[in-house]
């Protein structure tokens, strides 16, 4: 049994991805209880089903985020944390950043 997981996730950069979520940058969500621990891969599916109604291709590609979005787990690059396989903990802070290119 796993307790409910509370997550905050943010779109720090107004590179466009946050527009998909109706311009809301910060989401506080509680994931439903499930028998297995939640991982980031499942979180991305959950976000698509519950928060992202249109144009998912601007956020996901295959089972990961699309190129140009960097994922941070508790202020670290998700690559350091296991990427899609990272098991979410209660009160985790997940951030999606759009890479900026302007100058």
């Amino acid at each position: 049994m796993y307790a409910k997981i509370c997550l905050i996730f943010l779109f720090l950069s107004r590179g466009g991805a946050e527009l998909l979520f109706k311009g809301v940058k910060e989401h506080h969500v509680t994931l439903p209880t499930q028998s297995e621990p939640w991982d980031v891969k499942q979180l991305l599916v959950w976000i698509q089903r519950n928060l992202l109604k249109e144009r998912p291709e601007l956020f996901v590609q295959g089972d990961s985020v699309r190129p140009g979005i960097l994922v941070l787990i508790n202020d670290a690059d998700w690559e350091l944390m296991g990427e899609l396989d990272y098991q979410l903990q209660d009160q985790d802070n997940i951030v999606f950043i759009s890479t900026l290119h302007g100058g």
């Binding site: 601007l58 699309r66 190129p67 140009g68 759009s98 890479t99 302007g102």
Partner: peptide, 13 residues
């Protein structure tokens, strides 16, 4: 960090 470029339609200048 970015092995693949972003889809062009997602890039804002």
């Amino acid at each position: 960090l970015y092995p693949l470029p972003p889809p062009p339609e997602t890039v804002t200048n």
